[in-house]
C-alpha cells in the first residue's frame, strides 16, 4: 500500500540545511493500522506530509498503491490525494462557514461526482459517524469530538484506500479521544488502512504496529501489538 525507501527531505535556506528525514524507510500493508510516534521535531509531520502528498521529498523512493509519486505534477498529486487518501487533522480543519453536509461535500466536489452520488455518500458517512441528524449544523455548534467525527466522515466519504491521521485526538479530552479512537478502529476493521501520527504512547499501543521516529529516521519498528478495544 505505502512503501518508502531511503527517503530524505532536506529544507534548505541560504545559511542552513535541515534534514527533516534521512534514509527513512517504511512499508505499510493494506489493512494495517500503524502509528508513528516520536518526540517533537523528530520528523513525524514531515513524514505525514510526504505520505499524504502534501509535500515533495528530496530523494529516495515513495510508492503509493503501486504508483511512484516522485514524478507527479501538482494536478496529478491533487487528484491522487483526493481519490486515495483521507485526511484527519489534529484541529479538525472544518470550514467554519459551511454546515456539516457542505463540509463533507468538499472533497467529493473536487472529484467531480454527480450531485446524487455525493448526496448518498455524504449521508452514509455522516450516518457512520453518528451525526446524520445534525448535517445542517455548523461546526461551531458541535463539540470537539463531534467535529473530529465530521472530519472523519469527510475523510471516509471519498472511500479512500488509506487514512492519514495527524494527532486525531490531540485536541480532545480523554473520553472524546477514546470515542474517536474507537471509530478509527472500526474503520480499520472494515478494511481501511490507517497511518496515525501521535505523540501519545497509549494511543500507539491501540494500533497494530508502532513506528518510532527520531532525528528523521525510523529507529524502532515495533512488533505488532495486540489490538486494544475502546472498552479496555
Amino acid at each position: 500500500m505505502l512503501s518508502m525507501t531511503n527517503l530524505s527531505k532536506v529544507f534548505r535556506t541560504e545559511l542552513v540545511e535541515t534534514h527533516a528525514l534521512r534514509d527513512f524507510s517504511l512499508h505499510v500493508d493494506e489493512g494495517e493500522f500503524v502509528s508513528v510516534t516520536g518526540p517533537s521535531g523528530s520528523g513525524k509531520t514531515t513524514f505525514l506530509n510526504i505520505a499524504g502528498l502534501l509535500e515533495t521529498y528530496t530523494s529516495g523512493d515513495y510508492t503509493l498503491d503501486g504508483q511512484n509519486v516522485f514524478t507527479l505534477n501538482d494536478r496529478q498529486r491533487s487528484r491522487l490525494r483526493n481519490e486515495k487518501i483521507g485526511f484527519i487533522f489534529q484541529s479538525f480543519n472544518l470550514i467554519p462557514d459551511l454546515n456539516l453536509y457542505d463540509n463533507v461535500d468538499v472533497p467529493l466536489r473536487y472529484r467531480g461526482m454527480t450531485a446524487g452520488d455525493r448526496h448518498q455518500r455524504i449521508c452514509d458517512s455522516l450516518e457512520q459517524v453518528g451525526l446524520a441528524n445534525r448535517m445542517k449544523h455548523l461546526p461551531a455548534q458541535l463539540s470537539g469530538g463531534q467535529q473530529q467525527r465530521v472530519a472523519i466522515a469527510r475523510a471516509l466519504a471519498g472511500d479512500p484506500r488509506f487514512l492519514l491521521a495527524d494527532e486525531p485526538t490531540g485536541n480532545l479530552d480523554s473520553q472524546m479521544a477514546a470515542s474517536v479512537m474507537g471509530l478509527l478502529q472500526d474503520i480499520n476493521q472494515q478494511g481501511t488502512t490507517i497511518v496515525m501520527v501521535t505523540h501519545d504512547p497509549e494511543l500507539a499501543r491501540q494500533t497494530q504496529r508502532n513506528v518510532y521516529v527520531k532525528d528523521g529516521r525510523v529507529c524502532d519498528e515495533a512488533a505488532p501489538v495486540q489490538l486494544a478495544t475502546v472498552n479496555e
Partner: peptide, 12 residues
Amino acid sequence: QIGTRRALGATK
C-alpha cells in the same frame, strides 16, 4: 482553509 481544500484534493 485553502490549505485544507488543497489537501482534500483541490487543484490550483
